[in-house]
């Protein structure tokens, strides 16, 4: 699966929950929301190798 966060990208070929994915890329679960193929999903959702996941930072603007 392709994971996008700000200007960073990762590729994973495993099945895992959103929470595990967020921790895997070194972020706190409360600091991002996850979109799967453009749809908002909760952190217990299972994501698979063919998914595209976009992590949206909660803190933005200024």
């Amino acid at each position: 699966m392709r994971v996008i966060y700000r200007d960073q990208q990762w590729e994973f070929n495993e099945t895992m929950t959103v929470r595990q994915l967020v921790e895997r890329v070194g972020l706190l679960p409360g600091t991002v929301l996850a979109l799967r193929n453009g749809k908002l999903i909760t952190e217990d959702q299972v994501v698979r190798p063919d998914d595209e996941i976009k992590l949206i930072a909660i803190v933005s603007g200024g």
Binding site: L35, I56, I58, S60, G61
Partner: peptide, 19 residues
């Protein structure tokens, strides 16, 4: 803040993402 972000995303509001 994650709740206001969720509302913004679900409503399709275009906002400035960069800090």
């Amino acid at each position: 803040e994650r709740e206001t972000l969720a509302y913004t995303l679900l409503r399709g509001i275009d906002y400035i993402y960069d800090e």
